[in-house]
């Protein structure tokens, strides 16, 4: 197991190196000039050129890359060309909001989706199954910004039972923190619930047709026990995989959700950074998100050993 983890961590480092090269090059290929954005509309070409030289943007691309990657290796993601703040510090300031939405979404979506999938599989072909899957299809088809604005309109504007926007740090007020997370988490959770529910249903239907389930039924075991103890456990590997992959969807989806609900998280940070062509911030956020994604994949793979004793590394 330890050698497997070490091998995977080694390949993770390689993946992150390739990601950093790709992101660095793609950003430079995209039209835009951070110096011109920072200098403002009224700046002369000479002022912009001076600023560009000051920011080191005039250097050859390999020199810029080596300088930036050298900093990364020392645990420094660079400094924002716009705010002059360390990128790590900017990410740290915004991480709480994003992690709060992500974990609240998981907390709502995973139990709901697995329950929906199990119920739909157990009642496959009935109106319950069709209703649940209709909900799943709708959840998957509706873009987050549509769901978000609809929820704001109904619950915040019309019924006035939820806040429209914003984020309250957990250290400030736990109750208001949780209250402000409900609508964003439901918005983000809809797609996620739909994805997990569909996979759970499909896998459970397959497992429920296996011989050992028939044997369990023949033994007279209660259906609840068969479903939760025997079928769900055997359907666990694909479900855990899709939960892991889904977290990457959450990281992507959070950009839109944070914009709709005006939440100062990592998604908003990267959207603002793209508009300003703040290269170090964009590179830093993408690198951190890639690292999280790769490590989540590793954790997902390792979790298989807990679910299925036949799997070992």
């Amino acid at each position: 197991m330890a050698s497997y983890i070490l091998k995977r961590l080694g390949s993770t480092a390689l993946v992150l190196f390739l990601v950093s090269i790709l992101v660095f090059l793609l950003l430079r290929l995209a039209p835009g000039d951070p110096a011109a954005v920072i200098a403002g509309d009224n700046a002369s070409p000479e002022q912009i050129a001076r600023l560009r030289a000051m920011l080191g943007l005039d250097d050859a691309l390999p020199i810029q890359f080596v300088r930036w990657f050298g900093q990364v290796l020392q645990g420094n993601l660079g400094v924002s060309v716009y705010s002059n703040e360390p990128v790590l510090s900017l990410i740290g300031q915004r991480a709480e909001a994003t992690l709060s939405i992500t974990f609240t979404t998981l907390l709502i979506a995973v139990p709901l989706a697995v329950t929906m999938g199990v119920v739909a599989a157990n009642r496959a072909g009935t109106w319950v199954d069709r209703a649940l899957m209709l909900f799943a299809v709708a959840g998957f088809s509706l873009p987050a910004f549509v769901v978000g604005y609809l929820l704001v309109y109904v619950f915040a504007i019309q019924l006035q039972v939820m806040p429209v926007q914003g984020y309250v740090p957990i250290a400030e007020d736990v109750g208001r923190w949780a209250w402000h997370l409900v609508l964003p988490a439901v918005t983000l959770g809809l797609i996620y619930t739909a994805l997990i529910a569909r996979i759970t249903r499909a896998t459970m239907i397959e497992v429920l047709s296996e011989d050992f389930i028939r044997t369990a039924r023949a033994k007279g075991l209660p259906m609840k026990r068969i479903l939760l103890r025997h079928a769900l456990r055997n359907a666990g590997v694909p479900i855990v995989t899709v939960i892991g992959i889904g977290i990457a969807l959450l990281i992507g989806g959070v950009v839109v959700t944070e914009t709709v609900f005006n939440i100062p998280g990592i998604g908003r940070l990267v959207v603002d950074a793209i508009a300003r062509r703040d290269y170090p911030v964009i590179q830093g956020v993408i690198l951190v998100c890639s690292a999280i994604y790769v490590l989540l994949n590793l954790l997902t793979d390792l979790s298989y050993t807990l679910i299925d004793p036949r799997i070992s590394y």
Partner: peptide
């Protein structure tokens, strides 16, 4: 183009 794209190209 977005604004950042314009300010780069207009030079």
């Amino acid at each position: 183009l977005d604004w950042a794209g314009i300010v780069a190209r207009r030079a």
